[in-house]
Amino acid sequence: MKRTRFLGYGTAAVAAVGMMLFVGWWQVDGPGAPEPMGQRPIPLTEMAFSLTDHEGNAVGPEALLGSPTMAFFGFTYCPDVCPTTLSDISDWLDALGNEADPLNVIFITVDPERDTVAAMAEYVSYFHPAIRGWTGPEEQIARAAEGFRAVFERVPTDSGDYTMNHTASVFLFNAEGQFVTTIDYHEAREFALPKIRRALQQEMEETT
């Protein structure tokens, strides 16, 4: 009698532990796991959005296929991070010289209200000529950001204006549109250049 009850408790305990393990797995690694924040961007071939470049051309992810791509989200009313990143990008492009010729370089605004096509055209003219500025309706920018797993948020400032919080990493894709890696905000040139070369190299391998 005693033994069977004991056994019963034992079975219940094992079942309870098993249940806990299962629940833990479900929540952490299993189908119930939350979407990780630092998710990889999806391939450009799976993205769908339509924007306008700073010269007024209709553009989208399909326009980037066939060449490797370096992309960055920002806005032109950004006093610190965006000019710094675009200066960094210009510096990397200068350092790579002709090597960077096949690269698509795009700057997608997260602030279409202020960043019209004309505003983007003027802004990008101050940086490396390879940099293209993309803008468009907010819902299209949101779709682009979703594909890149980038985030942006409008934040009011005490001056009565607003600023934008946004993902400041630079994204690299190969010529087939596969995500290669990101360059972190203000990452040193000696780390950034090999990453860009990796995206370029993958293009070389495919064409040879």
Binding site: G38, V81, N165, H166, T167, A168, T182, Y185
Partner: peptide, 10 residues
Amino acid sequence: RTSTEGVSSM
């Protein structure tokens, strides 16, 4: 500030 997820805010 730039978060570990790469999001910059001011």
